[in-house]
Amino acid sequence: MVATYKPLLFALAYRMLGSVMDAEDAVQETFLYANEKGLTHVHNPKAYLCKIVTNRCIDTLRSASKKREVYVGPWLPEPLLHDTADDHAPDLAYIHKESLSTAYLLLLQQLLWVERAVFLLREVLDYDYEEIADVVGKSSTNCRQIFRRAKRAISVPSERGGESIKQPVREQTAAVVEQFVQALASGNIAGLLAIVKSDAILYSDGGGKVNAAINPIVGAQRIVMFLAGLRAKAPEGYHFKLTQINGQMGIAAYVHEQPYNVMTFRIEHGQIQAMYNVLNPDKLRHLASH
């Protein structure tokens, strides 16, 4: 029975941590603990398992907090490829793909750990406040207040009450990314400048492990020139493919068969507003088999 909750637990852990590998570890540790203790005494197994995995995530975040403070350059979440997501969550009915986007995950990082757990359980996994109270060990009234505070803090419209997270239609995002790739591959500078918003930002996460821009690059002209320079210096065997990453179209690049970088995008009004380029090899190891 425990295994049936794996998609749910991974959905929660990945959004809490922004790490595929750490989320998998948290879920595995939860299974081991639950199997050891048994669930026959548990009234609500789903809430019980979510509580365990949430605590595992908080422990991981605490141990990683000092590393985050000295992290070299921008920190970005580990990319989650489409088939990886489907493997963990074959039924995506309750796992809104909008909440997988890099931009969304970065917003979640602004929240305190308990706020993040309450917000995710309510907004993404559709728990009621009584269930959330069981998971985080607070009253339902307190959880309601925490949720409202968290929602205000990250300025994400609720998926209830007729509102929705402001994300472009997936097909529109794919079309813009495809245009971007075609323009970059052909060296069409004018085409790139037409796709990238004038005040766009490019974030590169190398984690101090590889060469990467330590500071965000701001402005379409600077971004396009930077990307054109990278393209000219691409190593032998470099190739990429368009694929679903974090619920949206993105770019996964390889040198021969080893993952090299992954780029995702935030699209606004048919143009690229932000680019998120993950180069840290530690964050790409799980992609080696793709």
Rank of each mutant, 00 (worst) to 15 (best):
V255H: 01
A93H: 10
A234M: 08
L284C: 01
V27C: 08
L184A: 08
I245A: 07
E98R: 07
H269N: 10
M263E: 14
Q179H: 13
G219P: 02
L12D: 01
P259T: 05
Q258W: 13
K166Q: 15
L120V: 06
N188M: 04
Y14A: 07
V278F: 10
N44K: 11
S65H: 05
I201Y: 13
L125S: 05
E268H: 08
E236D: 15
V262N: 00
N280M: 11
Q248A: 11
G161K: 04
R231Y: 10
L32T: 12
L125H: 06
V255N: 04
I58W: 02
I223L: 02
K209S: 15
P74N: 02
F147V: 01
N215L: 12
L8F: 02
P45A: 11
A150H: 10
E36F: 14
L39R: 06
A26T: 00
C50G: 03
S204E: 15
E257N: 14
A93L: 05
K37H: 08
A220Y: 00
C143F: 03
Q248L: 04
I58R: 06
H290Q: 11
R222H: 08
T141R: 14
Q182A: 15
Y127S: 00
H286R: 12
L125G: 00
Q271C: 01
I272D: 07
I214C: 13
D128H: 13
M21V: 08
L80M: 11
E24Q: 11
P90L: 05
A103L: 07
Y127T: 02
L17I: 02
V118L: 02
L242Q: 10
E178N: 15
P235Y: 03
A200S: 13
Y48R: 06
D86A: 09
Q28V: 11
A274C: 08
L287K: 09
V224I: 05
L39D: 01
G191N: 07
Y48F: 13
D91F: 00
K241L: 12
I217Q: 07
N211K: 12
K67E: 13
Y5A: 03
E178R: 14
A175T: 12
L39E: 02
K241T: 08
Q273V: 09
A13S: 05
R56K: 14
V176N: 06
M249L: 10
A212R: 03
D126R: 13
V20G: 06
T243H: 06
R160T: 09
Y238P: 02
T4P: 01
A232H: 08
K197R: 14
A174I: 04
Q221M: 01
A213F: 10
L106A: 04
K197N: 09
L184K: 14
H239T: 12
L192F: 00
T264E: 09
K151N: 07
Q258Y: 05
A185D: 11
F226Q: 08
D59L: 01
Y71H: 14
P235C: 01
Q221V: 03
L112A: 15
D199N: 15
R62D: 12
K66F: 14
R68H: 09
A194R: 01
H88W: 13
Y276R: 09
H239A: 12
